[in-house]
Amino acid sequence: MLWQKAWLETRWRFVIGLVILTVMAGTNVYEYVVTQRMMPLAESALAGADSSPLGAAIREAITLQREFRGFIWYNAIRDNLTQMGVLFAVLLGCGGLLAETKKGSALFTLSLPVTRKQLLGARVGTGLAQCFAIAMLPPLVIPLLAPAVGQSFSVIDSLAHGLCLFFVGALFFSLASFLSTLFGDIWRPLLIAVFIACVAALAQFVAPELGVFKVMSGESYFRTGSLPWMGLVTSAVLASALLYSAAETLERRDF
């Protein structure tokens, strides 16, 4: 029954997230045709691009988007699914028992014959399952729709990118879950987690090897065909540590 409660509390965030990310992935497939029509214009811009970091970035963006696989990775996976995936993972992690105190239902929940770890466990289990669906399903739309624009995209590639999106998404979900055991509203955990994600994105420019979003977008898989195992394991370990801290914090809290 706790699973049902967790599902009812988060279902709209999940459904909205799934629809938005799926529509984005599908739209990116159709955008490929439009982009290819505009490619001659982009090629002329490429001729004018200098050797500065910005010029190099423009050159790479145009080069990657000449092919469907590069276009999809660059636009759908690296940008849209990664950014929105983080946002919805954070949204799914926000709330829970402490936020219930504001609504007044926390004491009813705490009077049930279940432990606080069970309450958190049901919430986290449901949230992670939702994060998994949000990470895996939208990339699978790409191979499904690619034939409509005369292209193909590997299902294996979709699954690999989905896995990367899930692991790092789970890290942000865990961060929001932990923050939700410290603050009794959903806004502070949301804003702090999004702020940390922005800092992580900026840190990537300074130290690319620490780039959490490089792991999330599966950049190494796209470029070399090998999954970023170190990044995935690190994400899993950090997520576990955050969830453990959340459970301990919740256990000690007075209501």
Binding site: K103, G104, S105, L107, S111
Partner: peptide, 8 residues
């Protein structure tokens, strides 16, 4: 409880 709020 004194609040009597349940799941809305």
């Amino acid at each position: 409880s004194d609040e009597k709020d349940l799941y809305d």
